[in-house]
Structures are given as C-alpha cells and as structure tokens.
Design a protein around this nucleic acid. Structure first.
Length: 448
RNA sequence: GGUCCGGUGGCAGAGUGGUGAUGCAGAGGACUGCAAAUCCUCGAAUGCCGGUUCGAUUCCGGCCCGGACCUCCA
C-alpha cells in the first residue's frame, strides 16, 4: 500500500501517517456554526477534508469521519436578536442550507454530524471530569478551565502562556485566575438558550462541544483532527487542553491538519470582514466542478487567492478533462494511477495530482481509452469528473432550437453560404452556445 | 510587540543539494471555408545579503515583503 505522509501542525513536520488502528481510521473536523450561508473560505476547508477522507477510504478499510454542527453560539444569538428570527429557526434553516451547499460542491456527507445542542450531557460530563481533576473551577456562575493546571498548554499553537498575555486584545474578566483561562460553561439569560447543569442554568463555552463530541463518537484517542488555520488558537489549543486533562493518559488527536485561508484580492475572506462570497454567489457564475477544481488547485496548507481568472482557467481545464473523458468507453474501469495516488499521499499535493490529470488527458484525447478511464478514476478521488461529458457540456434544457439552428447552418455550409453559416454561429455564441465542426460533424456546448 | 507560515516565469502553482513540474496567457506552425477544439515547436522564474558546500532555488543566519493567529472565524 502507498505510504501516506501528512504535515502535522502540532510537530510542524511532514510525518508518515500511522493510524492507531489501521482497520479503523478516525477523523474529526470542525464543522460550521449555523447562522449564515457558507462562504467560499468555509467551503475550501470542507472540500480539502473531503478529499482527505476520500483518500483515506481508498487506503483503509474503514474510516469514521465526524464533523460537528455548532448550533449554540453567541453569534447565533446575536443574529436572532438582530433579525427577529427565532434561534431554532435560524439554526434549522442555515443547517439545511449548509447540507445543500456541501452536496452542491460535491462533498460526501460525513459519517456523523453531531449537533452541539444534542450533546449537552456529554459536555457537562467532561466539565465535571475537569473540575474533579483540578483543571477547572467555578467562579461567579461560570466554569473556567485553569490554564496553569496544564503544563503543555500552548504546545499546539507554539506559544507560551506569557506570550498570550503580551498582546491580548480583550479585557480579562475579573473572576479569572489567569488571563488565559477560558470558559467551559457560562450562565445564560432567561431569553437565551440554556440548560440545567450542576452550576445552574447556562450554556457551553465555544470549545467544549468538540471535546465532548469527539469523545462520544471517536473515543478519547483518534487519528486526525482537521480545521482552518485560524482555529489553531484558541479553539484547538483549548480543545486539546480540555480533552487531555479530562482523559489523563490519552493522546486526543495524534495528527492535526490545518488548511490555509482563502483570500480575495489579497485579503482574507471572512464573515467578520464582510468581504465574503457565499458558495451560492460563486455557483451562480461557474459550474460546481470548476469551483471545486479551483479550490484544489493550491495545496490545502497554503493561502489561496480567489480570482475570476482562476475560475475561468478552472472551467477551461474541466472542459479539457471532459473532452478527454469522451474517449472512455461506457463502463470502462481503470485503477487509480500510481503517480496520481502518490501525489495525494504526499500531504495531499492536489496541484501535483491535477498535473497528473493533465498528463492523462493528453493520451485520452488522442484516443487512449485506458488513459480516459484512468482519468475518470483519478478524478473520482478529487470528487470530480463523474458526470457524463454530454451533461457537463450541454446540461439539461430544451435543445431543439439549438439543434434546428445547427441544421440550418449545415445546410448553408453545404450551399457554401459561409456568411449565413457564420451569422448563425455568431447568434448561438451570443446565447452562450459554441459550435465545433469536427470530422464527424458539428458538436456544441454551452459556455454559461 | 509576540508566535507561526510563506516569497518560484506575465499569471496560477508543484518539486528539488547537481539539466527548475503542470496549467493559463504569449509567439510560430499543422488542421479548418473561417473559427472552435486538437496536435507540434518556441521563448520565459527561484525577494535581498551573507554562511556551509566542489556545487544552494533547496540547508543555516540576517534583512525586506506578504499572510495567519494573539480569546468572533474554515
């Protein structure tokens, strides 16, 4: 079997991936907070981890992929207060939109998508373990994690507790023992979501849900934890501290993977900056496979700058791949090519993998049916190239007017009335239909 | 200010201690009524300064520039 190497952000090194149990690989990825439509930066992360899981599924017999849904959060509360829409309605609606968008970009559903609000008892249980172990304390109705109780605190994000204080941007609540202490549980006002707990009616802090739900579905130790690089601190640092202290002797996640941010015009795309495109904005301008190819055209760890040029190029590349696929006999199957698999096994080197796609497209276009079948098999690992080529080029819709115009143009060409033929072709082009005259006749495709 | 990541042709983007992938764009040609698509050919890059080395784009140090994070974030 191909060795898989991954860049572990905890050690900051590329390491051979060795699952704790090769017959069952376990992966946890931080999912969305459901209060708005996913933007393209969110989508990049989930596409990257979708490819990771597809790869793991080809290398290992069983993979459990857990991705949480955060449906209790102060941003959700703020959105509800601002819009008047009830919290439950916001989370239900945007949760459904999230699922629809994941399907629209070609991501396979995770095995488990636990909601935070359905796992309050597990969170309370973890918090109780932390208090019992001397890692958490109650203060003014809050339960706080005591950073000083965990000597490894800061190891994941590479900072010392002292560094964290130096440039702190927020005021330190007076009830904290240390400035770095963070909330596990906090009191909730009567008009906000709350659950009964040993510390009164309240709601969880941000980080505890992931500790609770990874424990519930993957156990105290698992193989890979993924998320955006902006989550390394504080979210993952705190999550790790909670889990390691609640379950002494465990390793929690053994490999941490963090995807780079997506930028637009050199600036980070994020909800708080208000410069984001939702996935739906982008899908209105290009087919989903072009968007997906663009997102995979840079390595997951690097910053990716989104541009219209890139979108156009990705679309043209998909055109070429699907053209090549037209030479695959129906039902032809080929194994995933070695070089392609090797690229993905090198820390998900998707640009190198896409270069292999191009290397297959050449022979396939020249009529090599095996190369075409291999191209399709490789594309499948990226979540691409599984449509019929005619659907990619022409899609659904009423083609009768187009076909009639093509017939008329063919008649004009036979009569050597090229002016008329060119007029028809130009008219179709204006409608987004490109004609291509080949040795076997005229074919057509949509470009919008 | 602190921690971390990165700077490769016109653009995007890999890799590598010893002729620097791939795609787009560009130039020339084949094919075509003309195009489109396809094919052939070509030109074009390692931020700056040192160090180690027979040899550095790669390793080390400094500098410059960009980005992420420093309790909202994928």
């Amino acid at each position: 079997m191909q060795d898989l190497y991954l860049h572990n952000s905890q050690t900051r090194r590329r390491e051979l991936f060795v699952p704790a149990n090769p017959s069952h690989v376990r992966v946890y990825v931080c999912g969305p907070t459901v209060y708005d439509l996913p933007h393209l930066g969110n989508v990049r992360a989930f596409v990257d981890f979708d490819v990771l899981v597809r790869l793991l599924r080809t290398l290992y017999p069983r993979v459990t992929y857990v991705r949480n849904i955060t449906d209790v959060d102060d941003k959700i509360n703020a959105r509800a207060a601002a819009s008047g829409e009830p919290i439950g309605a916001i989370t239900a609606r945007t949760g459904a939109e999230f699922q629809a968008d994941m399907a629209a970009i070609g991501n396979q559903p995770p095995d488990v998508q636990p909601c935070a609000t359905a796992h309050i008892p597990e969170m309370i249980s973890v918090i109780e373990k932390l208090i019992a172990g001397g890692h958490a304390y109650e203060a003014e109705g809050h339960v706080l994690f005591a950073v000083a109780s965990f000597s490894e605190y800061g190891a994941l994000s590479g900072r010392s507790p002292d560094d964290l204080l130096a440039g702190a941007r927020v005021e330190v609540a007076p009830y904290k023992r240390d400035a770095g202490d963070f909330v596990l549980w906090k009191p909730s006002a009567p008009d906000l979501p709350g659950w009964d707990s040993p510390w009164g009616r309240g709601r969880p802090g941000w980080h505890i849900e992931c500790s609770a739900m990874s424990w519930r579905y993957l156990g105290t130790d698992f193989d890979i934890h993924g998320g955006g690089s902006d989550l390394i601190f504080p979210h993952h640092e705190n999550e790790r501290a909670q889990s390691l202290c609640a379950f002494p002797g465990s390793d929690f996640a053994r490999v941490w993977l963090h995807n780079g941010m997506l930028q637009v015009n050199g600036e980070k795309m994020s909800k708080s900056l208000g410069n984001f495109f939702t996935l739906r904005d982008v899908l209105a301008r290009a087919p989903w496979e072009a968007v997906r190819l663009l997102l995979l055209s840079a390595r997951y760890r690097t910053v990716l700058d989104f541009s219209d040029t890139g979108l156009t190029e990705a679309r043209d590349a998909m055109d070429r791949f699907y053209r090549a696929l037209q030479n695959a006999p129906a039902g032809a199957h080929a194994p995933v090519p070695e070089a392609f698999l090797a690229a993905l096994c090198d820390d998900l080197n998707t640009p190198a993998a896409i270069a292999e796609l191009h290397a297959l497209a050449g022979p396939a276009l020249a009529g090599d049916a095996h190369a075409a079948a291999a191209l399709k098999a490789a594309g499948n690992l990226l979540g691409l190239l599984q449509q019929r080529p005619e659907d990619w080029f022409r899609g659904d819709g009423d083609d009768s007017a187009i076909l009639a115009a093509i017939e008329e143009r063919l008649a004009a060409r036979r009569a050597r009335d090229f002016a008329r033929a060119d007029t028809i072709r130009a008219d179709l082009a204006a409608q987004g239909v490109v004609l291509e005259d080949g040795p076997t006749g005229t074919t057509w495709r949509r470009t919008n």
